[in-house]
Simulated assay, not measured.
Amino acid sequence: MTEPIFLEPVFHEKIWGGRKLATDFGYDLPDGKIGEVWAISAHPNGPDTIANGPLKGKTLDVAWRENQEYFGHQKEKVFPLLTKILDANDSLSVQVHPDDAYAAAHERPGELGKTECWYVISAEPGSYLIYGHHAKTRQELADMIHRGDWEHLLRKVPVKTGDFVYVPSGTIHALNKGIMVLETQQSSDTTYRLYDYDRVGADGKKRELHLQQSIDTTTVPSHDPELNITKTTKDDATITTFVTAPISKFFSVYKIDLDGKLNQTPTAPYTLVSVLEGAGTIEADGKSYPLKKGVHFIIPNQIKAWTFTGKMMMIVSTPGAEQ
């Protein structure tokens, strides 16, 4: 396949969601509080459908199993990454995600752990995240969770538009009201909630908490990863490297600010691209494909060179080493 793989996104209603994915990105949303668009997904809880080319009509999970030539003949049983946009119209639950070993032992067969990262598309003035905690030992963590001593346990971190946040598995975290992010993560849908503001769901009941799993999987003591964010220029683009190996073994994530042309060749078996601002084209194998804000696609293994043209901001990710 010598053309990009464009995808039809899947939308998920959330108690904390809103309608900004329609107003800001032009998505045709279903009714309700839509919190997430799963933009590049092969996860069984929301696999995207391929919109073009020889694989048109297949879901990405089926293509991963049946058409490995498009992905460089990888050994992973499942497509390893998931790209989302999240609209936090209200605060998300305070939560933590397991690593691969814990997920394999305690969740459905094939479920991965969840290391993720956020590019902050927009954040209202005064916005902050829950990121990390103040407990020094696991016993202190458990005691503070069971007492509900959130004021002393949880760490609040200011955040603004354009920030990048890396969230390894084991990190207590939460997006708060007024923040929209592009999330790059392992392909997992496992979340352990330790606090949910005593909210009730559509059924009138408080949502389930996972206190023991949270205590078991949280990294103690908490620590911030030391990122080495760098900027380089190439052709008519500025490329910001947010995270890559050895800090992250699961993915590399970049931002491309383009005003003109950018010629690229692959650095991985396949490449994931999300257009977050502007419009332009991608040219591959002599053909040109239009791009605009809100479009997400995969550059498959068969494409050995491509050119972006236009005025765009894109978040690009590539998979880490095979696990």
Rank of each mutant, 00 (worst) to 15 (best):
M1Q: 08
P4N: 04
P4I: 07
P9M: 09
F11E: 02
E13S: 11
K14N: 04
G18A: 11
R19V: 12
L21P: 00
L21I: 03
A22H: 14
A22G: 10
A22V: 00
T23K: 10
F25P: 06
G26V: 05
G32E: 01
K33D: 15
G35N: 06
E36D: 01
V37F: 09
V37T: 15
W38V: 04
S41A: 07
N45P: 01
N45K: 10
N45F: 06
I50Q: 02
I50R: 03
N52L: 02
P54Q: 04
D61C: 05
D61A: 03
D61N: 15
R65A: 14
R65E: 15
E66S: 06
N67D: 15
E69N: 08
E69D: 15
Y70M: 10
Q74N: 02
K77S: 13
L82A: 11
L82F: 09
K84Q: 10
K84A: 03
A88L: 08
N89M: 09
N89W: 05
S91C: 01
V94N: 04
Y102W: 13
A104C: 07
A104N: 14
A105T: 06
R108F: 13
R108A: 14
G110V: 11
G113I: 04
C117L: 00
W118A: 01
I121M: 03
I121W: 00
S122W: 01
S127R: 02
I130M: 04
H133D: 09
Q139P: 07
D143L: 04
E151D: 15
L153G: 03
L154A: 05
L154R: 09
K156F: 14
K156T: 15
P158A: 07
G162N: 06
V167G: 03
A174C: 09
I179E: 11
V181E: 00
V181P: 00
T184M: 02
Q185H: 07
Q186F: 08
S188V: 05
D196R: 03
G201P: 03
R207N: 07
R207Y: 05
H210T: 00
H210W: 00
Q213V: 01
I215C: 10
D216F: 06
T218W: 11
V220I: 14
S222V: 08
S222Y: 15
H223T: 13
P225N: 04
T232D: 12
D236W: 10
A237L: 11
I239L: 14
I247L: 10
I247M: 06
K249N: 14
K249V: 14
F250D: 13
F251W: 12
G260M: 04
N263R: 14
Q264H: 08
P266D: 13
Y270Q: 13
V273A: 13
V273G: 10
L276I: 15
G278A: 04
G280R: 13
A284N: 11
D285Y: 06
G286V: 07
G286L: 12
Y289V: 11
L291F: 11
L291I: 13
G294I: 02
G294C: 09
I298K: 02
I299R: 00
I299Y: 01
I303V: 08
I303R: 09
K304M: 07
K304W: 01
A305V: 03
I315W: 00
S317M: 02
P319V: 00
P319S: 01
P319F: 03
A321K: 12
A321E: 14
E322S: 14
